[in-house]
Write a protein that binds this DNA or RNA. Structure first.
Lengths: 203, 203, 203, 203
DNA sequence: CATGAATGAGTATTCATTCAT
DNA sequence: TATGAATGAATACTCATTCAT
């Protein structure tokens, strides 16, 4: 079985542009990256960018979309064979954190850069986020149905809390480009989300 | 006790500028607001802005600082007479949410606009945020010391989770300028943070 | 006599391009039409346009030339059997107006779009206009020779006045794409050009 | 009585821009003139253009408006003391031609450049043209009322014919920047418009 | 305390056109 | 006959900021 090196359907120019753009994102704000810079780095002309992308934002969103696609594929794979809502959530927390830890550039973009732009929420990239959110809500509801998860907390708040905790824990890493240790963060968040902070005996 | 009408120490031009700027923030991104617009709205010349503020960002940060000052005063007042770390945290969650709900403009600015700018973290405004963070950490540690709060979750994660939950719950309101219902959100978050989502019996 | 379906000598790609271009002209400025748009509409690649046309303008001029050719054929036909310079001019005024009324796109192009471009006056299309002008001057001179037309007005001015009146009467129609009523316009123009505006008795 | 040298209300930068723009119009299409060129010629920065004018077109329309204002003032003066509609029209024809002859740049702009732009018809400049048109229609109607002018030709067509004749006679001058002889052209047009081209006896 | 005139560097975006295959 | 990838030069417009008065 020869794992055929899937030939990219994209023309070489487009590939160069995307690669250059990602490179630049490593150490610059999206806003601080100019089209001239992208073209120069990619070794193509500025005009070509607009052959493949509606505008600079569209370039960002398409790159983001590709990232989300990969992430969703990974999450799906990660969840296979896992039983129980809580166990699934634990895995999701871990995977999501791991993705932010391994792709700090994307963490920064997702947590800080795109959220102020209304058009992001119209993009195909965000559609994938919505899909992800639906999946998680589904798991939470499943947990409630099975009696695993409390029913006196609205599922949407559970989701808010999970993502809030993840994102806030990654925020400094994203802002100051500092490394993130997936395992301890995941462990702390899970404990907190699953059993709360209040001491049993005390309550 | 005559409630002295505190005479503003600021010159009229500065007041007009700040007022105009706040007005514009109501329905525009900081980035989308131009100095020309501020000056026009305020009824002063562009030049005057630079008499009172180093630059446009400085204007933002000074306005933000004033907001944080008020907020901290309020929080301090809200916490007086409250006993126990958990009760204090409950109050803080409520107050913070309430502040976001009542000042959606600032919620948007804090959650979405300033965080990408490294210089924000050098500003006097952010210094107040740091102070707030320290206060909260202090309360959490106090709770741990008193046996109220579990000691197997790092206090900083507890803080992350609290703010993460609050912020994530307010995000949509901030982005799409939608109203927020303080009480139910606060209730849900407290339940979750304090006792977790997992059903006791089940565990 | 079998009306042979004259097989177009043009390759299919060229036909598609011309057809697409004419379609686009229906609701857009020549300047506002891009080659990309033409190609997309025609279902061919941009490159192909340059196989058949030197450049975008050349495309316009060739289309215009074809239009003028048809128009001249029609005019020639319309004039057959008509006797006397004045009668001929009357017919020409009517036919010309009718052509503008039925082809408002071309009216717009001729009256508004090509005249600013010096190279238009070098084009084969404009050569046909010249031919048309010569023909009309010939008719006017014939009228002067026959005593039908006054000899104290320079023939070239007569031609200016005729076309000026026609064009000015069609201008609004061309600009705002409004329908034109050939008959009343023609009648008014003929009366004016032939007998003037001053009341006989009065003079 | 010291004829005070009316101090221009405009800031020096604006004056320089307008002067430079007019200069450039002498030998270039409006479209071919770049903002960079205007700024360079004026000795100011490009940005300043946008302080005083909404955009490049606005600059054109404001210049045009000033031109029309002067022209209307002149026409008004020219008509003073003239009696009878026909005499007034004769004067108008002459003045209008003279204006085109003396300001060929404006002739070119008016006859060729602005008419394709829908927004021209929304401009303040065009509002003055409308005013001029109304004035002329008024004179024609006055002539009809007084029996001087035939009533079987619609006044609007008379106006079309007058302007059509004038404009068509100036067209070549405008396009190829050739001198125009006001007097003979005016004489020819008046004869034609007033008494027509058909020989009395003949008809 | 405030004005208003001017800057200047930046920046995305457009489009006709070419050419190897 | 037609493709499709790529060019490259042009260009209008924005805006925070300065400074003499």
């Amino acid at each position: 079985m020869t794992p055929k090196q899937e030939p990219s359907p994209w023309p070489p120019g487009r590939i160069k542009i995307v690669r250059a753009f990602k490179m630049l994102l490593e150490d610059k704000n999206f806003h601080a990256i100019t089209t001239a810079e992208i073209a120069r780095t990619a070794g193509v002309t500025e005009g070509l960018i607009y052959k493949y992308f509606r505008d600079k934002r569209d370039l960002l969103y398409q790159v983001l979309k590709a990232h989300f696609e990969k992430f969703l594929l990974q999450i799906e794979r990660d969840l296979r064979g896992i039983d129980g809502a809580v166990n699934k959530l634990r895995k999701i927390i871990w995977s999501n954190l791991d993705s932010y830890a391994n792709h700090r550039v994307f963490a920064r973009i997702i947590l800080l850069e795109v959220r102020n732009s209304p058009d992001y929420f119209e993009s195909e990239a965000y559609e994938l986020v919505r899909q992800y959110n639906r999946m998680i809500l589904g798991i939470i509801r499943e947990g409630v149905r099975d009696g695993e998860i409390k029913e006196d907390i609205a599922p949407s708040f559970i989701r808010h809390a999970i993502f809030g905790a993840i994102e806030h824990a990654c925020l400094n890493g994203a802002i100051f480009n500092r490394a993130l240790a997936t395992d301890p963060i995941a462990e702390n968040i899970c404990r907190l989300i699953f059993t709360g902070i209040v001491n049993r005996g005390k309550e």
